[in-house]
Design a protein around this nucleic acid. Structure first.
Lengths: 105, 105
DNA sequence: CTGTATCCTGAACGATACTG
DNA sequence: CAGTATCGTTCAGGATACAG
């Protein structure tokens, strides 16, 4: 159970995964989809999730020996199983409309 | 969905909730169940979870006007709904035995 | 007993520059 | 294009002391 938490650590991680639930992505696609993340953090998340077995990294060697490098990330089977789990978490959060405007507090 | 994440923020929060899934608890009971948490962090978590509508705080005025103060925390209905969600998360984590001992890395 | 106040440390985050 | 290196900032977390 600590495993799940360590795999998902970081406050952006779930949003990254959320992107992948709609299909595979490249680094720049993610960069545009999540402008709030700096390159470093995005890079960290991708590396971490790859290590955790949630993502797979595929290098598509295009034509030149190394130019331009095309790297595509996809969810692993294990990562895809995370979909319903995160969905449940989001649903739970959406269920709750905390009404602490004035009277209670 | 950010709501769920903010409600659960902090790496000890889910373990605290886990305690509550087995029944209500007092401050000292939690302190013994989770020795890794300092008073401050435990206090922070309880306050945060109470604000988030996951826990309820009940003061049992014992006999003296204020001594000893007995405070008991219980899950709210909303908090109880978190049970299956966290269970799913833990199951997911338990499913994965990451085998990165030598060869792969 | 049930916390809060204070201070400190370390990790995560964020921005920018730079490399393969 | 896809990152890494470096640096500074911010914030959660840990320890201790103290208060209601």
């Amino acid at each position: 159970m600590e495993i799940a938490l360590s795999a998902l650590h970081g406050r952006w991680t779930t949003l990254v995964i959320r992107e992948f639930l709609q299909g595979d992505r490249t680094f720049t696609e993610l960069r545009h989809a999540l402008p709030a993340l700096s390159d470093k953090v995005l890079s960290d998340r991708l590396a971490h999730l790859t290590e955790a077995g949630v993502l797979d990294r595929h290098r598509h060697r295009h034509r030149q020996p190394g130019w331009p490098p095309r790297v595509r990330y996809t969810l692993t089977a294990h990562g895809r199983r995370l979909g319903p789990v995160l969905q449940a978490l989001w649903d739970w959060g959406a269920q709750h409309r905390p009404p602490p405007p004035a009277g209670t507090r």
